[in-house]
Write a protein that binds this DNA or RNA. Sequence first.
RNA 1: GGGGUCGUAGUUCAGCCCGGUUAGAACGCCGGCCUGUCACGUCGGAAGUCGUGGGUUCAAAUCCCAUCGGCCCCGCCA
Length: 598
Amino acid sequence: MPEIKQALMPTPPWRRTDYCGAPRAKDAGREVALWGWVATRRDHGSLIFIDLRDREGIIQLVFNPEHDAAAHAVAEAARAEFYLAVRGRVVRRSEGSVNAELPTGEIEVVVTAAEILNPSLPPPFPLSGAEGAAEEVRLKFRYLDLRRPEMQSNLRRRHQALRGARAYLDAHGFIEVETPILFKATPEGARDYLVPSRVNPGRFYALPQSPQLLKQILMVGGFDRYYQIARCFRDEDLRANRQPEFSQIDIEMTGPRPEDVHEMAEGMMASIYQYAAETEIERPFPRMRYDDAMERYGSDKPDLRFGLEMRNLSAAFAGTQFKVFAETLARGEQIYGLVLPAACQLSRRELDDMAEGLRSRQALGLAWLKIAPDAWQGPIAKFISDQERTRVAEIAAPAAGDTLLMIAGARGKVRPALGDLRLRLGAKFDLIDRAALKFLWVVDFPLFDFSEEEKRLVSVNHPFTAPHPDDIGLLDSEPLKARALAYDMVLNGQEMGGGSIRIHNAELQLRVFELLGIGREEAAVKFGFLLDALGFGAPPHGGIAFGVDRIAMMVCGTDSLRDVMAFPKTQKAVDPMSGAPSEVDPRQLRELSIRVAL
RNA sequence: GGGGUCGUAGUUCAGCCCGGUUAGAACGCCGGCCUGUCACGUCGGAAGUCGUGGGUUCAAAUCCCAUCGGCCCCGCCA
């Protein structure tokens, strides 16, 4: 079997001159040598066509037994996903046999020599055509999945996005510095992945959740402008857009104001979109205060691709006869509503389902009114006075045929709930402009939130975030009212990145730790190196970090992170291809002084 | 930890409600024929622990319970 002999050879019998996807009509007459996988094979008995595929595309090969019997024999033996080397001449296809679907469709290669460099088992799922195959199978045979043009294109766009980021950052004086993967466990934030230290029995490294502290220390270390495409690890449950390990474009600058970070980040994002999508994006991005985002969209990452803005209707219902609203207001709670335009009609059933969902999940009531010119309609219409209608109309301006949806309850619950409803309605009625790129900055985040679980203040961002200069006085009196110098970049309702100006003064940092319930001693043990560093002339600094995977999802237009990562894990954080995580040899555990208690 | 949903040839799915002979289809695979196809065509063939375990029943892919796994979501996570 001549094909087996060639398959044992470590290198191909001839060099490649072109990628399969490269030749065009102008190459007619050229002798080319190609390597690639058999995408499809059409055997006419004597004449055989093979579509050969590599990363650049697909080209049609013609095997005619009258030209070369040996090459033809190879084509006869070849099957899907065999890796072939061929030589031949590029020829123009005859009129009428041109394939307009293929970029190479005006030409074909008449093969004069062919070798099977390696045969293939029949692929366990079809690589062309349908998206059909179950994700588990795709992940198990990821090397085959990655050959698919769609995955090839996604990972290349991701590569281009990173090129765009690097090009911009390089041009603006940022220095790429690598930081350790074996780092120190941190008490705040997500669960850490731990790595035992063999030479220090009983001690553990943690994989970094982000290089946050290290990049701050690089500022103290004088690098002035730093960036890194950093791998980050968080041991939390997975989602369609969340993997346990992911990448960030991590950036830190000495001495910026928030606006300086914004300008830089917008420039970088523009560069990313140029490289990865050949798209110009509009700058500067609008800015929205956190309070406004919550008030109008019920979210700290509002999707501005459609309207359906929320309004606080509490004032309109002061003194109302409608018992539920009256009780809500008496408790000091709020009524928020949004107007669904006449074009979007919800059936009674749909409204009831929505109401039921809100009641069971969040213990919130949904009320609705259909707007008719005179009398509004709905189960609660009879409780609504003329005066209330007038006042609601002033605030929310509904038109005839519209539906007014209202949720009553504590502000902290109502706004996100209505915001969530807004998103579902936007999707349901297809109000979202798919082509739009709606960037914005959300600014003036609160510095702290109160954790009901832990009965203490927690950082909204992280404990190193600087308070707004106007609010430093509030730290002592009303810390929950203090704003942070923090900002998120949001695109189409997705958080692309977030950052802040950091605390660069050890005293202020200790004060913030204290408010978070971290005493001086604990701070010294856990963050001593940071506090020490801040004590040696640490310059003011701040920065931002972007989710590379989410950026890749946006430029590829996919909903699943797994489509833009080469080797993602399943929801159970398993890699079906390698079988990780796996059990290990008892000897390895002994060396690490680890005993497993299940 | 919780909710939803799916699991049947290599793949995608039908059959399941309403239990009843040999569990079907398409694609793929194997073999034959075919010199202009491009999802080639055409003739024939092989291929299934119905996720796993238990239960109900004369009889289970089908009904019940448990369990494992994929996906989506809540919690968790910036």
